[in-house]
């Protein structure tokens, strides 16, 4: 039983890692008042660019850098459209998802070596493998936390840092101010445009890393649509975590753990409805949304940034 719980926790953390990267990224973007629905496309692009790089160079570090650059390029595009051009953020985000999904699929069929019909699909490259931290990994159950790959260990650091930065530093306060009331923030002397640009791009970088975790560690290699809709799940996770990076982990573990648990229950012969379990995280998300709509005070305290998805123009009321 202990072994089962340990293995479920281990796989849950692995499954949740890409979700945590992307969720924290999107929380930062949304906190600045920019809604980025391009996540699915950006994760796919992050995944395909990372795998192509590692396949040709064998360097995992370089793969992460290329993946981050991809995220920077795509999120800059979104930032340019929604901040400078003041385009509708939903439309801009969705078009980035469509664009990214198509381009990733296209690259997957063109970037490969001639010997494989130029397909990236079906190739095997370097990958991040889990390694145990001596001593700590021997503790029952908790040991699962300390037998992960490097990207998951990094996530353990990113969560507290992201929380601390957002709530305990001046920059974090500025970020939240821009998302809540850009006019006030502007009056206080904060550069709203610059702030939004920075956090949209920072967010996009993390989102692309989430994609890279899929193709470099969790399901090494490239397959079309490797994210399988995880970009959309992240949108729900941001709401679930009520725009707080420290809560991102619970949602990601819930979503990541559902499959790990239900597949293991099935393998042991237990009957539990898979569609029901798959539904659970979404139900919780809906409940969170309903609660926030009902309780105005709760919404003010932990709800969506007030200026989310509202384009800002200096001097306009």
């Amino acid at each position: 039983m202990i072994a089962l719980i340990t293995s479920i926790l281990a796989i849950t953390l692995r499954a949740g890692t890409s979700l945590i990267y992307a969720t924290i990224g999107e929380i930062y973007t949304e906190r600045s008042g920019i809604l980025n629905l391009g996540l699915e496309g950006m994760m796919l692009m992050g995944a395909v660019s990372a795998f192509a790089t590692v396949y040709y160079t064998g360097s995992l570090g370089l793969a992460l850098i290329v993946s981050m650059l991809t995220g920077i390029v795509l999120s800059s595009l979104h930032a340019f459209l929604s901040i400078t051009m003041r385009a509708n953020q939903v439309v801009s985000g969705l078009s980035i998802t469509l664009f990214g999904t198509g381009l990733a699929s296209f690259l997957g069929q063109r970037l490969g070596p001639a010997s494989n019909g130029h397909y990236l699909i079906g190739l095997i490259g370097e990958k991040f493998t889990p390694f145990a931290i001596p001593g700590l990994s021997k503790i029952p159950v908790i040991g699962a936390v300390f037998s992960q790959d490097i990207l998951t260990y990094i996530v353990y650091l990113i969560i507290p840092v992201a929380w601390f930065y957002m709530y305990k530093t001046k920059n974090g306060l500025n970020l939240r101010a821009v998302g809540e009331s850009p006019q006030t923030a502007d009056a206080m002397g904060i550069n709203v445009y610059r702030t939004r640009y920075i956090y949209t791009i920072v967010g996009g970088t993390l989102v692309a890393l989430g994609g890279a975790h899929l193709s470099l560690s969790y399901a090494p290699g490239w397959t079309d649509n490797i994210t399988g809709g995880r970009g959309w799940i992240v949108i729900a996770l941001v709401i679930f975590s009520m725009w707080n990076p420290s809560r991102a982990i619970w949602g990601a573990l819930l979503f990541g753990g559902i499959n790990a648990i239900q597949f293991r229950l099935q393998a042991t012969g237990t009957t539990i409805s898979a569609p029901f379990l798959n539904m659970l995280p979404y139900i919780v998300t809906i409940v969170v949304l309903v609660l926030m709509t009902w309780f105005e005070t709760l919404n003010k305290k932990v709800g969506a940034p007030a200026a989310l998805a509202v384009p800002y123009m200096r001097g306009e009321k």
């Binding site: 796989i11 499954a15 969790y218 399901a219 490797i226 994210t227 293991r264 393998a267």
Partner: peptide
Amino acid sequence: DPVKEREAAVALLDS
């Protein structure tokens, strides 16, 4: 769903 298919296989292998 590449990731789900892998997760299911891993669960079976663990069993």
